[in-house]
Design a protein around this nucleic acid. Structure first.
Lengths: 214, 214
DNA sequence: TTCCTAATAGGTATTTATACCTAGTAAATT
DNA sequence: AATTTACTAGGTATAAATACCTATTAGGAA
């Protein structure tokens, strides 16, 4: 039986690969293979999937990106853990990583301690996401959850009124059109603002256009 | 040397193909090939591009639409003329056709006389656009020209302020941000409304989003 | 039945936006 | 030198939107 961990690294900068390898020298983590692009990494893994415990990969790589690589590995070889390294932590990048079901995500400016910690946690507990990006994940999730809920949460009447608002009718005009009191329209507006989390009509318009209410 | 014209027809309705073929029988226009979708048509043309003088194609087809097919043909085989047939003449369809650089466009309800005339003109003079759609093209062009003009008509400062409006800042907040009086911001707003022809902030938001001001 | 929600409507107050004005300054154009 | 334009700023007034409340009715869910 093998008590060591076999790791494959994918990164299009040889220097990064070498750096990780040197950080992991003299540990139980053995970097047995490396690849300069996602495609090569996938070939290596596919040819001997049982060999690897962990894939450490960059995101932007030729031929096959790190997140795409992660998805494919997770689909075909779910036992292999994946740690993604990235230069940036923009919400779109973070979202991509989460969507790819990576086991971990750290920034390239992380020190070797964090790298070792990440690898250790991933191989034992399960996941490691760097502190900086956890709030980003939550914000993203919250935002999307709210958006999804909101489209459905708006009642038919509210959607009708929102549609008229976007068509540049005032509350008074909407009231006339729908044979209800301006006050009722205003109440609906308040509720729509609440439900969508918008601050003003401006937000409502953007919300409506984004959600196909025209 | 060949004094005849070779035509390929792409349409997902065999009946349309047969109709065109019968209209062109006993003319110098020979329908040598046909395809039930854009992809097949493209394959046929690619395998022997010198053979064809004209492609007659429907717009809505499986695998590859007529306008997409047209673009590809025009790009790879610019000598082949393209006549597009369509059920509809909505401005969006017309725009698509013009963008695809088709040599001609007629509606499917056109008679065989118009079809023959269109083919003749395309193969000799260059282009044929059915009478019904010429005003549509002009209107479209006018509309877009106006929109473009308008974006440029806004001064830099006005665009800056519009951008902040869209970001849901109030006049007061914008004033603070730009170190100017709220009154000045309001004046800019009035001018922006004038120049864009919008009735209210709602219209401005839609205008801004449409014109890439965010 | 009871509870909850959507839709209705009103009161009051404040904030924001818009409509009209006038007017100075600086820069560019004619 | 004269004119135009962009940017600045103020006054006054009205219209519209928003923030808080309360309250009734009807219909569906617990």
């Amino acid at each position: 039986m093998n008590s060591e961990y076999n790791i494959i690294i994918a990164d299009d900068h040889q220097i990064v690969i070498d750096g990780i390898k040197s950080v992991l020298s003299n540990t139980v983590y053995k970097v047995t293979d490396e690849a300069l692009n996602g495609q090569t990494a996938l070939s290596i893994i596919s040819s001997n999937p049982d060999k690897f415990n962990l894939l450490i990969t960059d995101i932007s790589m030729p031929l096959l990106s790190g997140t795409e690589l992660c998805k494919k590995v997770k689909q075909s070889f779910p036992l292999i853990k994946v740690l993604i390294l990235s230069m940036y932590s923009s919400s779109s990048v973070v979202k991509e990583v989460v969507m790819a079901e990576a086991d971990g995500f750290i920034l390239k400016n992380a020190g070797k301690e964090e790298l070792q910690k990440a690898i250790h946690k991933i191989l034992n507990d399960g996941t490691y996401y760097s502190d900086e990006i956890i709030p980003i994940i939550y914000n993203q999730i919250e935002k999307e959850k709210k958006q999804k809920e909101n489209t459905q949460i708006l009642s038919e009447r509210e959607r009708e009124i929102l549609s008229l608002i976007v068509k540049e009718f005032t509350s008074e005009q909407i009231a006339e059109k729908l044979f209800i009191s301006k006050k009722t329209v205003d109440n609906h507006r308040t509720n729509i603002l609440d439900k969508t989390g918008c601050k003003s009509t401006i937000g409502l318009v953007k919300y409506a256009l984004k959600n196909g209410i025209e």
